[in-house]
Design a protein around this nucleic acid. Structure first.
Length: 272
DNA sequence: ATGGTAGCATCGCTA
């Protein structure tokens, strides 16, 4: 089973590239973030044409998350479903969860945080804490779980191109990394790190500006977090940098590259 | 130190 995540930065602008990538990379499940679409505007037909069912949670102009699956899609929930303060906070489409081939898959788009002195920064930390309680309360780590998406956190200094340039910046602060550790302490593992335990400077996002992609100035902020039964099944993972390139007259790329994780996992017949 | 780019509900905001 190939499980992928990709912040597409507008599915409307990126649809041809996403469809090309589905045909080329053949993921069984693709989690998307920043679709920037309302639910009614989601292009269901071209996904169905490639054999994918889709669960989407969108609001229109910003955010928007989706899960496309060709191995079954059930028990869909949009947004937070439980936990304290579930009625609080801004109504932003940043979480959708569905069961795919026996794995509880979530597509998440963690708030950016903007800067440490922004009012958005504590909201990011609160959102992460709420994500933890929502996705883990009442569950055993032995439940097959995969939380996939744009976490807007680089877990370690080796996950940014130059740690010195990020001192005092968001995405690398101790509080953000601690919020991420709360998830891993519960039992979730960074699947990419399971495959590349020693490497550094392997990124999933590069700023559009100043030739950052070409100059290898990026960050690893897109993650697939897996519970122990899924971790046991991890065989391979890759960031597809080809998809971050703008090729000739094609549509321009997202500023994120897709990450996929290959699992030795029984898919079984597709069901819905 | 600044600015660099992209998407959008575009002349301001988000990333």
């Amino acid at each position: 089973m190939r499980l992928a995540t990709w912040n597409v930065n507008s599915l409307k602008a990126r649809l041809p590239k996403v469809l090309d990538w589905l045909e080329y990379a053949q993921p069984d499940v693709l989690c998307m973030q920043e679709t920037k679409l309302a639910d009614a505007a989601f292009p269901t037909m071209p996904f169905a044409g490639l054999g994918y069912e889709v669960a989407h949670h969108g609001e229109g102009r910003w955010n928007g998350v989706a899960i496309a699956s060709r191995v079954g899609l059930g028990e869909v929930s949009q947004g937070f479903v439980s936990g304290p303060g579930s009625a609080d906070g801004p109504d932003e489409a940043r979480l959708v969860t569905a069961e795919c081939a026996g794995i509880r898959v979530s597509s998440v788009y963690v708030p950016n945080g903007r800067s440490l002195d922004s009012e958005q920064y504590p909201l990011k930390l609160a959102w992460l804490e709420r994500l933890r309680t929502d996705l883990t309360s009442g569950l055993s780590p032995e439940t097959p779980i995969a939380i996939c998406g744009d976490f807007n956190i680089a877990p370690e200094d080796r996950d940014v191109y130059d740690a010195a340039k990020f001192v005092g910046a968001t995405h690398v602060s101790e509080a953000e990394r601690s919020a991420l550790r709360a998830l891993t302490d519960w039992g979730l593992a960074d699947a990419f790190r399971c495959v590349y335990p020693h490497e550094g400077k392997l990124f999933t996002w590069w700023d559009y500006r100043a030739g950052d992609f070409h100059n290898h100035r990026g960050m690893r902020i897109d993650l697939v977090l897996v519970s122990p039964p899924v971790r046991e099944a991890v065989r391979y993972a890759l960031v597809d940098r080809e998809a971050r390139k703008g090729l000739g007259s094609e549509a321009p790329p997202s500023d994120h590259a897709p990450l996929f994780v290959d699992l030795d996992w029984a898919i079984g017949p597709a069901s819905s």
